[in-house]
């Protein structure tokens, strides 16, 4: 699977109502670590169908960023059964991200 672009219109369907765990990556084009993280998230999305990866551009989707109180990026939030279960700020090792989803 590839990374899904998250918007206010599909967030409910792709994240809240997802039957798989979801890693939401709040990011921006002007944030260098966010850009450096992107190829790693692409790798993760391609390597497994056990979870979904949703990328939210905080400039395009400022309402979502505000709703989830994002004020530092990259901000990586794991959702399970519609609930936020884990959150990390800044670059994280790939395997830690996978473990956050598997927990």
């Amino acid at each position: 699977m590839s990374i899904i672009e998250g918007t206010k219109d599909n967030f409910e369907k792709e994240v809240i109502k997802s039957d798989k765990p979801v890693l939401v990556d709040f990011n921006a084009t002007w944030c260098p670590p966010c850009q450096a993280l992107h190829p790693i998230l692409e790798e993760m999305a391609e390597e497994s169908d056990d979870y979904k990866i949703v990328s939210v551009d905080i400039d395009d989707e400022d309402a979502l960023a505000e709703q989830y109180e994002v004020s530092s990026i990259p901000c990586l939030v794991v959702f399970k059964d519609g609930e936020e279960v884990d959150r990390k700020i800044g670059l994280q090792p790939k395997k830690r991200l996978i473990k956050m989803l598997e927990k």
């Binding site: 921006a28 002007w30 944030c31 670590p33 966010c34 004020s71 530092s72 990026i73």
Partner: peptide, 16 residues
């Protein structure tokens, strides 16, 4: 306060 005012990266978080 990390992510709630404290940052170690101005180019990441300056925009906020």
């Amino acid at each position: 306060f990390i992510g709630k005012g404290i940052s170690y990266c101005a180019t990441c978080d300056g925009g906020f």
